[in-house]
């Protein structure tokens, strides 16, 4: 299966890349999401702007109290980074469960985020971590909160003249921890999420001081489960408290039936995985 014909541009700098972007162009980093769509001819951009050769975008950087991940950092690097594992376990785990070995060697964390698949793993993690997304264009850089970045199925807040050049999230402070868990479409944790949940918690004096929980796979976009966080905050984080909070997993989310499950099944899974992810995040918070 060949994609339809397109013009291929491999700019050597971001400025060149911005110049190549137009109304019917698409940015490609690893191509693991884009090329299969183009091969099935579900999507046929006139121009593919391959940012894969732009230097300086492939770093995971420690900037003191934050970590930044560049546009060309591959899933395999996100998954195995000691810095990310120690400070943002939800993202490292989500990256380790994205695709398979070959996909993780080519695909990029930012590429997956910009693609905004409804059942991708890493979008939930960046929402739970409170990440900031850098949408850069010729006219500057917009900072977008991860919780505002995912707009609808395969639709992010990026404009057609912008490139997601990186993301930034806070390092784990005292009492803070995060986790991601999912049921995959091929069973276990393989493949896209039927239901996936990322959780971030902050413990203080035996109770949960702050929390963010995000659910992916069950609706039209990865979504902050605000009701869960509200129920968790101020609780003692006991199994009973977590179970009770997890009941709010799909509050405000329109759960959709698909090939992988009914509304009832996916709603149930969301609650189960909220409880698992929150418990794992609490354990990671020490």
């Amino acid at each position: 299966m060949y994609p339809r014909e397109f013009d291929y541009v491999a700019p050597a700098s971001l400025d060149e890349a911005f110049g190549a972007l137009g109304d019917d162009s698409k940015v490609m980093s690893g191509g693991m999401s884009l090329l299969p769509l183009m091969k099935m001819r579900l999507f046929s951009p006139a121009t593919v702007v391959d940012i894969g050769r732009i230097p300086g975008l492939d770093a995971i950087e420690d900037s003191g109290d934050h970590i930044s991940v560049g546009a060309l950092v591959r899933h395999a690097d996100t998954a195995t980074s000691d810095l990310i594992k120690a400070n943002a376990a939800a993202l490292a785990t989500a990256a380790s469960l994205t695709g398979d070995v070959q996909v993780r060697n080519r695909g990029t964390t930012c590429g997956s985020l910009a693609h905004a698949d409804v059942a991708a793993d890493q979008p939930a993690a960046v929402i739970a971590l409170g990440a900031t997304m850098f949408a850069q264009s010729a006219s500057g850089t917009r900072e977008i909160a991860a919780s505002d970045f995912f707009v609808d199925a395969m639709t992010s807040a990026l404009r057609s003249d912008e490139i997601l050049t990186g993301i930034r999230f806070p390092k784990a402070g005292p009492g803070e921890g995060s986790a991601y868990d999912k049921l995959g479409r091929r069973g276990g944790r393989s493949d896209y999420a039927v239901a996936g949940v990322a959780a971030w918690v902050k413990k203080s004096n035996g109770s949960i001081e702050d929390a963010r929980v995000a659910v992916t796979g069950v609706g039209t976009k990865p979504t902050l489960a605000a009701g869960v966080a509200e129920a968790l905050i101020g609780s003692d984080g006991s199994d009973a408290a977590v179970k009770s909070a997890a009941e709010k997993a799909i509050d405000g989310i329109t759960v959709l039936e698909d090939l992988y499950g009914s509304v009832e099944y996916k709603s149930h899974l969301a609650k189960v995985y909220v409880a698992r992810a929150v418990k794992a995040a609490l354990a990671n918070a020490g």
Binding site: Y8, A10, G31, M32, L35, P36, K39, D50, G52, A76, V101, Q102, V103, N105, R106
Partner: peptide, 14 residues
């Protein structure tokens, strides 16, 4: 690194 050659353009392997 192992990769899937059906999901890459030849020009990406330059």
């Amino acid at each position: 690194k192992p990769v899937k050659s059906c999901s890459m353009l030849a020009v990406q392997a330059e």
